[in-house]
Design a binder for these strands. Structure first.
Lengths: 188, 188
DNA sequence: TAACCCATGTAAACGGTTACATGATTTC
DNA sequence: GAAATCATGTAACCGTTTACATGGGTTA
């Protein structure tokens, strides 16, 4: 989790509250955390010398602690980025449901998977819109390997490929459920 | 987690150890659990009347408890299968790394993503082989909506679409990293 | 004889979610 | 006057992972 915060702070100094807002919107669409995780984690990172903060006083709003990544933190983050990853476990409740779909009423199952197809399709369209916006607004930056915009665009591409795959799978399964056969009857 | 166990027990009675073996191989490729989670969970499910067990004595091996799903358990499982799902958070360490890849040495990053591409490609090929085997061996069953084989095949299809998408994304990113530009230089 | 498989459990640690807690300012 | 935003924290709970624990039988 700490590296998600460091990844954000490597781009710009932010308060815990700012980080919370960005983490709720899902960092790179593939991570998230609530504020109750963020504040203690910032304290931990500061204890390890990865970040430091200064208090910024505000008139109309509560004062805030603005965190900055340190050289140590930046170094650790860089090391971590290219360090090998062990394959993590993927957990997906819908796929687990699919595993027992043979027990279900096919009509209800169709409803479930068509609904999910629609939701993932909507998310796909949102991602594609954002992608088009980035291409227009950020242009050449998307090809600069040392630009954060390139990295943000890269994670968005994974979002697009993920949602496209998910949508297609839902559609495939819903179609099979609609046109399939129950019981010992033959196909064709 | 309980529904993963119920889903397996709906197909056939199994011991805790049998369940452990199947859960390690990832139920439907999208769930897993260790034995330390399974045994207490089975006790909980039995307490709720979802499963029951009888002790099977063996000569050459330790005795075992074989669990069977009850009518209650089967009913609960059926209800759950078509119940709506709240969109869960996807956490992917590699995508989180991609989010900070602009800080990294591009050569090291290429190594990371090419390695991951290869791993996901290999998994894809394994899945596709299994799929081809199922189509050959299970034939018409893959079209019978009330056959467990249909459901297993359906989850495998998600595995295939997932690994294909992942492989393509890794390839896309690695390619960009190989051919990309560093610093303020223009593209083309 | 050492390692591995079968078989079943408990305990500690860890990470994440939900709930508790406070308080000022601004918008409806 | 009520609700939402800004801002920061703690505490309890829950699910998962790792480690501890035992013990007989088989294979290399």
């Amino acid at each position: 989790m700490g590296f998600a915060l460091l990844g954000l702070l490597a781009q710009e100094p932010l308060s815990g509250y700012d980080l919370k807002l960005r983490m709720e919107r899902r960092v790179g669409n593939f991570w998230s955390a609530g504020h109750s995780q963020i504040y203690p984690e910032l304290a931990r990172l500061e204890g390890e010398g990865m970040v430091e903060h200064r208090v910024v006083e505000q008139q109309d709003r509560p004062d805030k602690k603005v965190y900055t990544i340190t050289d140590t933190g930046l170094h650790e983050l860089k090391e971590w980025v290219t360090a090998p990853v062990e394959p993590g476990v993927v957990r997906d409740e819908l796929v687990l449901k699919a595993y027992s779909v043979w027990l279900a009423d096919p009509e209800k199952a169709v409803t479930l998977f068509r609904d999910q197809q629609r939701l993932h399709k909507e998310q796909l369209l949102r991602y594609e819109e954002i992608g088009a916006w980035m291409e227009e607004e950020w242009g050449e930056d998307l090809y600069r390997l040392d630009s954060p915009r390139f990295a943000i665009y890269a994670t968005l591409q994974r979002g697009i490929s993920y949602e496209r795959g998910y949508t297609e799978w839902c559609a495939w399964l819903a179609y099979r459920l609609e046109s399939g056969v129950r019981g010992g009857g033959a196909r064709a």
